[in-house]
Simulated assay, not measured.
Amino acid sequence: MKRDHCVILCVEDNPINMALMHHIFKKYSQIRLLKAESAEQAIEILGEEIPDLIIMDIQLPGMDGYEALDYLKQREDMRHIPVIAVSSYAMESDIVRGREASFAEYITKPIDLKHFLSIVKELMLEVAATWEL
């Protein structure tokens, strides 16, 4: 069965940043955006639907982005989901830590929109290759 869309879960507690994500993706009819304001809320959503991609802020209330990534990596049914970290932590040591934690990509704020979309498109191509035809 071929899918004509993909699902992206955005985990972001800042309403302005969430609005930016909504604005970025609303023009792509093949993308459905799910939204969570915390990692805990994201985990609830993951209990109902597994997205093709997760965009995760690092600094979240409660469980942070690293803890959420660890949770995903421990779950057999979720460890395959690519997770893009989006963070205001932009020091080289922060970027290295993000890569070592196995985020698919580590994007710093403010977001370079062209670079961000190229990463999303690249990861979506990888996901599309796994879709049943």
Rank of each mutant, 00 (worst) to 15 (best):
K121N: 13
E100Q: 14
E105T: 05
H115I: 11
S118Y: 02
E100D: 11
F103E: 00
I95A: 06
E92P: 12
I111Y: 01
V120T: 01
I111G: 02
H115M: 11
Y106S: 03
G98K: 09
Y89P: 00
E92T: 10
K114E: 14
K114Q: 13
D94W: 06
I111A: 06
G98E: 02
R99E: 15
L117T: 02
V86T: 09
S118M: 13
M91K: 15
A90Q: 09
L117D: 07
K109R: 08
D112Y: 06
T108L: 06
E122S: 05
F116R: 03
A85S: 04
A104P: 03
G98I: 14
M91F: 15
K121I: 04
I95G: 07
R97W: 02
M91A: 15
E122V: 00
A90E: 09
A104C: 11
A85R: 07
T108H: 04
I107F: 01
T108S: 05
L113C: 04
S118V: 00
A101V: 03
E105N: 10
V86Y: 08
A85N: 01
S88Q: 10
S102P: 00
D94V: 08
R97N: 11
I95L: 13
K109W: 07
K109S: 08
V96R: 14
E92L: 13
S93W: 09
K114R: 10
S88K: 05
S87W: 11
H115R: 15
F103G: 00
Y89F: 15
E122K: 14
I95Y: 06
S102R: 12
S93E: 15
Y106E: 04
S87M: 08
A90H: 12
T108N: 02
D94E: 09
E105W: 06
D112V: 13
I111R: 01
V120K: 04
T108C: 10
V86F: 05
R97S: 09
S93Q: 15
S93T: 14
E105P: 05
S87D: 09
D94C: 05
D112R: 12
V96I: 15
I107A: 03
K121E: 15
